[in-house]
């Protein structure tokens, strides 16, 4: 017996080397990406600069290059890493609690809920001095409300059907879309521009100041979600089996729902609507390393960060000096992938 119905051998690969290799590639991508853009800075010069920084010598970079690197590109790379990691891990977590490999934060309306709440803050309190701090929390509330709504709509007698989750997601997305439309109608020209930019998803215009509150939330939420990986594997067996195995289904669902909403909310509040990362990345890891969340979550986190860095680098270099919104770019890649997944999905309820 070989081939049919058997797990591929790559699934037996040990987690640690795979994770280390992925981290090395991520680091490389970050160094290459930080030099790319409208003003190109050779990776060698960046490394030399880092070396001199460590040795205390003179930097080979001009003041202008330093300002570009550390004031504009570095926060952007950090944001890409955090958002990619947060969306992938929360995507995997939502797929776990919904027991649905097709649940993506953007697809099932969680990002939409966050976007609606954030849009309301931009339009209603856009001039508030603490808007960078309020935005992630508002987005979290929106994401949480959307998660709860999808869960309540899709759950019948302890069973969450795959089709029902996607249908509920359509409804929640439509609702969120209508709300965002309303706010763009109410907003003034500046707010409208801000909203549009942000609905398309973008990592541009990030400053350290805007990044810090959202970054703290993402790191905390992702860390907690990673700690839920093992019970998450048990949970995908269904609520009854999970209870029999010692996991209280309601408490677990609520806890993971809140953590995923925190991560998605924070990500959406700084980067806008970026879809499909939470769907595509966990799926790629599942195909290579198997469906265990103890692999999908940590490796997905690194891979998600990598995908974001690559996509963002593309977004700001393919149309120099203009910039393509990264959300748009990822949807162009992600939507066909989703259709392909849908075609080959044999999940119950589809």
């Amino acid at each position: 017996m070989s081939g049919a119905g058997r797990a591929p051998l790559s699934r037996r690969a040990a987690l640690r080397p795979v994770l280390l290799a992925a981290l090395a590639v991520l680091l490389l991508a970050a160094v290459l990406s930080i030099g790319a853009g409208a003003v190109a800075i050779a990776p060698g010069r960046i490394l030399a600069h880092l070396g001199d920084l460590a040795m205390g010598g003179d930097s080979p970079l001009s003041d202008r290059d330093r300002a570009i690197l550390f004031g504009i590109r570095l926060p952007r790379i950090v944001l890409a890493v955090l958002v990619g990691g947060a969306l992938s891990v929360s995507g995997a977590a939502l797929q776990g609690v919904f027991r649905n490999p097709l649940a993506d934060p953007a697809l099932i309306g969680v990002s939409g809920g966050a976007a609606l709440a954030a849009a309301s803050v931009i339009v209603l309190a856009g001039n508030h001095p603490r808007v960078a701090t309020i935005l992630p929390f508002a987005a979290f509330c929106g994401a949480l409300a959307a998660t709860a709504l999808v869960f309540l709509l899709a759950r019948r007698a302890g069973v969450v059907s795959v089709g029902a989750v996607l249908l509920a997601g359509i409804a929640v997305n439509a609702l969120a879309g209508a709300g965002i439309g309303l706010f763009s109608y109410l907003g003034d020209d500046l707010q409208l521009r801000q909203l549009t930019f942000w609905i398309l998803g973008s990592l541009a215009a990030t400053t350290w100041h805007e990044l810090v509150p959202a970054a703290a939330i993402m790191i905390l939420a992702v860390g907690c979600l990673l700690a839920h990986a093992r019970p998450m594997d048990v949970f995908v067996l269904g609520e009854r089996d999970a209870f029999a195995l010692g996991i209280s289904p309601t408490a677990f669902t609520v806890r993971v729902g809140i953590l995923a909403a925190l991560a998605v909310g924070a990500a959406v509040s700084v980067s806008g609507l970026i879809g499909f990362v939470g769907l595509v990345v966990p799926h790629m890891v599942r195909m290579m390393l198997g469906p265990s969340h103890r692999r999908v979550m940590p490796v997905g986190m690194v891979l998600g960060a990598l995908v974001m860095i690559v996509a963002d680098t593309l977004a700001r270099t393919i149309a120099v000096p203009a910039e393509v919104p990264i959300g748009l770019l990822l949807s162009l890649i992600g939507a066909p992938f989703f259709l392909w997944l849908l075609r080959r999905s044999h999940a119950p309820g589809m």
């Binding site: 797990a7 027991r99 649905n100 490999p101 069973v159 795959v162 594997d233 995908v236 067996l237 269904g238 009854r240 089996d241 029999a244 599942r286 198997g290 469906p291 265990s292 999940a347 119950p348």
Partner: peptide, 12 residues
């Protein structure tokens, strides 16, 4: 407990 029906949508 071993239930009558256990569903699993992930390829474990």
């Amino acid at each position: 407990v071993m239930f009558q029906h256990s569903v699993l949508a992930f390829p474990f």
